[in-house]
Write a protein that binds this DNA or RNA. Structure first.
Lengths: 239, 239
DNA sequence: GAGTGTGAAGGAATTCACAGCA
DNA sequence: TGCTGTGAATTCCTTCACACTC
């Protein structure tokens, strides 16, 4: 390192971006801090937080200086302040308008789960391509026709979209979001999708998760010489 | 909290372990290769596979030498052979016996989704603590009482367990698996669980995933100076 | 020539260790 | 003294470039 050019690392980009692994840990911290808040605890140390989240203390400190630098030396972090800072970092300090495409079993399960406002989201629409499902109730909402997506997305200001449709339909749904207010897409369909510019995509394939787990889980009763290395601690998101 | 202690590095283990990021990419490769197989394509290059999976070609080669070293120089990878090798690596070369705890909306949705044998799993039991749900059908199975878990798990040789119960019940369910044939646990409850020794845990919290996505998805229409760095490509599992 | 396997270089994230503030 | 914030060291993963095989 230390080549001739001192800085100017990311050309033109002012981007002081937080490492992705750190971002994925923030919701874990947030959940832990909210739990402390609920118990009336007003201060927490990096060590205590680390223990609650199953990570090292120094990584907690580094993460928080990146994303929520509200610690006080010799004291710790004020829980209320820290929770607010993390929520702001994750942009869930206001409930974000959310839509779900696919009113099948998975889609409706997600709709009910995410309707808890504590998660930071507000479900404003559920769509389905099947005419039989359109008009059916899901929680306090009514299923809308997928063909009305663009209009409704704009009208209701949807910012995030959960895609819970069959794999064959996923790319089509993804293409729909171009030019709408949607800037993030959580894809549960078991196929990769290419998103329009300006839209972030995160894929969550349940079968994939299980297969990864499967690798680390030996057949039991196995007196096979195979030791099967352990899964390195808090893998994956939610610790 | 983490499950297994951070250390205890599989003592005595000669440890030639594949990097975790590489493991998480294997299901993606597998899906792509199976798709090629279905098209009757019998050979694939690292470059072609990389393009299909949205990663670099050299990482594909490195991953495959780690986990499925079946390439032929100057030729490429035989798709059938590669698929078999990856399945073996992930231990899904035989359908793995799987149980689901929690027959609520999410649990039943997962049950139906995973009942497709192509994923490499065979659902052998669905449990619930609610007596009203016990005896109800889920697909071709009948919901069993959670209190019968240990007995049924042993009898049916369950190796993996999907936990789809409320957060308050997750640790209790996790504790149940001690001493059974279950060696892997996929936790959907939004709380960290500590697993018994010898059991790998992977947490998948849907709210967490959305919060991570939320960070990368700016409020639309935003003329806010905030540029919001883009999500670094194929984050998370499925490509 | 085509394309894998791999040492070596490069970069990113974690961990260490301690300086600095309350 | 207690605990955060942070340069420096370390470890891990990725990328490069090419030797080697078909």
């Amino acid at each position: 390192m230390a080549q001739s050019l001192p800085d100017l690392p990311a050309s033109g980009d002012a981007g002081r971006s937080v490492p992705l692994p750190a971002v994925t840990r923030m919701p874990v911290y947030l959940a832990a801090v909210e739990s402390l808040l609920a118990e009336g605890i007003s201060t927490v140390s990096s060590e205590a937080l680390a223990a609650a989240c199953g990570v090292g203390a120094s990584i907690v400190r580094r993460d928080l200086t990146h994303a929520a630098p509200v610690g006080r030396r010799g004291v710790g972090y004020d829980t209320a302040e820290l929770a607010a800072a993390i929520r702001a970092f994750l942009r869930v300090d206001r409930a974000r308008p959310l839509g779900i495409v696919g009113a099948g079993r998975l889609g409706t399960a997600l709709a009910h789960y995410l309707s808890d406002p504590r998660h930071g989201f507000e479900i404003r629409a559920v769509f389905d391509a099947d005419p039989d499902r359109v008009g059916q109730p899901v929680g306090s909402l009514t299923v809308s026709a997928e063909s009305d997506f663009r209009e409704i997305a704009r009208a209701r200001g949807l910012e995030l979209l959960v895609v819970a449709v069959p794999g064959s339909a996923a790319q089509g749904v993804t293409d729909m979001v171009a030019g709408t207010s949607v800037t993030g897409l959580l894809n549960f369909a078991p196929v990769p999708v290419r998103a329009p510019a300006g839209v972030s995509v995160r894929n969550v394939d349940l079968a994939t998760e299980l297969q990864v787990l499967s690798h680390f889980a030996p057949a039991s009763g196995g007196a096979d010489g195979e030791a099967a290395d352990p899964l390195p601690a808090n893998t994956k998101t939610g610790v």
